[in-house]
Amino acid sequence: MMADLKLTQKLWSGGLIVLFFAGWEAFCLISGMSDLILPRPSQVIETLIARFPVLWPHILQTLSTTMVGFALGVALGVFLGAMIGVSRVAYDTVYPLLIGFSSIPKVAVVPIFVLWFGSGTVPAVLTSLAICFFPIVVNIATGLATTEPELEDVLKALGASKMDILWNVGLPRTMPFFFASLKVAITYAFVGTVLAETVASNRGIGNVMMSASSNFDVPLVFAGLFILAALGVALYVAFSLIEARVTGWATRKNDLVAA
């Protein structure tokens, strides 16, 4: 009964997504829209297939740049989040600085990175790092702040150090928050990479889209968008799967009891 319901739901949402693209296709055909303005999805996919050998190295470039920037962003975010969550002094000094930094539009930072490191991969990695670490910091800090005071008392009375409490209670408790922030951060990381590639690089999907649009090769621009969307969705799904395994205790109950 339940399984039927779930399956029906999935079929419905799948059908609606297909309908969305079909509607787009139909709209372009009926209105006689020029493919210089809005190409049809079928054209985009055609372009994607035809140009795939050329696009492939750029896909790899964007993906690897994003993954490196994201990994560094996670490391930095966890470190800062743990510091802010544990130490009052760090909270008072680091938090205002971070909020200031995250309020700066990252487009404004790319030229500085280029100035320091030249154009290419390094500024793209840094931009993606800079844009994705903030939600991780906030979520880790919040997770640490929600530790029950009674449990902390129990452990302190045992002579536990701050590190003991952080390691055994604080960090495991932040896991659900951490994964929630990872899913946000990975999509941000793509934004950062593409941003920097558009401004200052001769490789990557961002650059492909930039040069395609200056050639009025609009289907190729849209092919770039489709690739980015697909990469984003794929990584989002990957983290959701890991999340379900690691933090099953937070979503718990009926599913697990039955298992």
């Binding site: 009674e150 008392d153 045992l158 495991p172 933090t247």
Partner: peptide, 12 residues
């Protein structure tokens, strides 16, 4: 050893 009204078992 300490115990409070709230058993504070770690859920994971």
């Amino acid at each position: 050893g300490m115990a409070f009204q709230n058993p504070t078992m770690l859920p994971w």
